[in-house]
Structures are given as structure tokens and as C-alpha cells.
Design a protein around this nucleic acid. Structure first.
Lengths: 156, 156
DNA sequence: ATACATGCAAACATTTTGCTTTGGC
DNA sequence: GCCAAAGCAAAATGTTTGCATGTAT
């Protein structure tokens, strides 16, 4: 198995549990537990990285699914705050599960295209505090991406 | 000198001078000085904010211009490093002149939609240094946007 | 005169919607 | 049975290219 990026230290049982919890919440909001929904959550949780819509419909469990189905699921999940939409200036929109322990700061290699999370805590809390307290902004969040050559590619 | 005199207070003569200099450089790269190019640079310099392609073709001096023309100009300017492409997770691609005194950290109000620059220096130099020296990344740059309610909208 | 730049149309890609059928509850 | 979800197709939107003509050099 191609061990992908950062911390894939979630056991199978754990990830089942997380997905179960998410689905419970979604059902409280009126959504139904369907195969497509489960597969989608699986894919996004396990890979632990942002996906293009077009990539999602290639993922094993979702292959063959209509893009429109995935699109509508993603949009619903986004409306319910379970999914984040990202943009890195290249092709299209990326989507990622919006879990509490993700910090959403990304590293993009412009050679191999790999997208990973920044491997240490975010430094922008202070900046957000300043914007709130000294400039009057409210409800702040941020999106941050670093672009460059990853260690592997800069050797090659 | 307080770091960001970059607000929008550039005199007309100054901005003419800046545009003249940019055009000279562009001509060295083989581009021709055309009305569309001048109007485009004008619009982007004066407004001092990122533009959607669709917005650019509405700007007074460019109104009526073919989108394809503006598109090709922007792409050329981007290839030559004079324009930056940005992305804020909503609709499309934004473009902004890539001037030395801009730092490219943005504030987006999700109520009024206004996009402004962060009014103080960027704090990410340290992080980039760490990524370079401890993690082996090369040629780093970043894109950063804060999302929230601006002072005006959070009062209303 | 020789390219590059433009305008127009059309090819492509991506996102979004309408509508019928399927399936969760 | 009721209503959300899925599948299929097509519309809307956004990006990119081809080609004939115009224009800067």
C-alpha cells in the first residue's frame, strides 16, 4: 500500500467509528445512510488529503458513480460543515473532511504535485487574534498553502 | 517609513511611471505596447486588488474587449512573472499585479465580499525558513487568505 | 513587411440543474 | 408510502484554442 503523506495513524476500527459518528450527525440533519455516502466518507477519511471531484469518482469504492451524485453529496456535506472546499490555483476545487484535528495548512510540490499538510502547528492564531482585537474582524478562519519543491523532488 | 504605504495612494504620475517601466520590461520580452495592455495594467495597478477575469472585462478602459484578449494578456503577464494568480475557494481565478511591495496576504469578508490586503507584515518567513532548513523544501512561496466578517459588516 | 495582437467563434472542461427511477426510512 | 438519493442527460459556466484580420514595430 502506498503509504501516503502525514499521519495515517488511524486504525481501521477507529476510522469506522469516526465515520459512524459522522453519519449519525448527518442523519440528524435529515441525510440518509447510503452506500455512496459511506464510500465517500471512507475515501476522504482514509486518504487524509484533499480530493478533486474528478479524483473522487476514480477512488475504488466510488468508481463508476455518477459525478453528479458525488457532487451533490459533497455540496451537502459542505453545507453541513463536514467538508471544506479548497483551491490551490491549479485546476479545480479540492475537498477535504473538516475534522477538528486537521489544521488545513498545506504544502504543494509543483514538481510531483503532491499535496500534504504542514507537519507542525499553525502560527496564525496570533495573527487572527490581532485582526480580531485590533482591527475588528469577526469569525476568522484562514487558508494557507506553501508552494515549492518537496525534499524528494529538489534532490532529483 | 511605515511598511505599507501601498494602500491606494499612488499619484497619477507615479502610476504612469510604474506602468511605463513595466511596459518597457515587457517589450524587452517581445511584447508590444498596445492599448489593451496599457488599459489592463492601469486597471490592475489603480484598483490594487485582485480581479476576476470577468471583472476585468467590465472595467471602464477594458469594457467591450474580448475576454480572450484579456485572457491571453493575463497569461502572458503571468508567464513573465508580472501577474500572480490567486484563488480564494469560491468561484474562479483572481489575478493581481506582482509588484515588489505587495505581500499577498488577503482578508476576505464573506458578507460584503470585499478583498483587501492584510494591513501588517507577513509572519510566515519563519515558517518558510523552518520548512527549508529542517524539512528540505526549496523555492518556497505561499498564499494566505483570512476569511471572516470585516469590521463594517460585523457591526451591521 | 513581418510578426505579434485582436476579435470572433468554437472546442473543451467543469460545475450545476431537471427529471425519472431507485431505495432508505 | 413518502421523500431523499442516484443515475442519466443536458444546460450553464468558465477556460482555452484556431483562424482570419488588424496593427505595432
Amino acid at each position: 500500500m502506498e503509504s501516503h503523506s502525514s499521519d495515517c495513524c488511524v486504525s481501521h476500527e477507529e476510522s469506522e467509528a469516526i465515520i459512524g459518528r459522522i453519519i449519525d450527525e448527518l442523519r440528524d440533519s435529515g441525510m440518509r445512510k447510503t452506500e455512496a455516502l459511506e464510500e465517500l466518507l471512507h475515501a476522504m477519511l482514509e486518504a487524509h488529503r484533499p480530493f478533486l471531484l474528478s479524483e473522487l469518482s476514480e477512488v475504488p469504492g466510488l468508481a463508476g458513480r455518477d459525478q453528479a451524485t458525488i457532487y451533490r453529496l459533497i455540496m451537502k456535506l459542505k453545507d453541513l460543515g463536514k467538508v471544506r472546499q479548497l483551491n490551490f490555483g491549479d485546476k479545480g476545487n479540492y475537498f477535504q473532511l473538516n475534522l477538528a484535528d486537521h489544521h488545513h495548512d498545506y504544502l504543494l510540490c509543483h514538481d510531483c504535485g503532491e499535496i500534504t499538510e504542514v507537519p507542525f502547528p499553525c502560527v496564525l492564531k496570533e495573527v487572527e487574534k490581532k485582526l480580531r482585537e485590533q482591527f475588528g474582524w469577526k469569525n476568522l478562519s484562514h487558508s494557507l498553502a506553501f508552494h515549492g519543491q518537496c525534499p524528494a523532488c529538489s534532490k532529483a
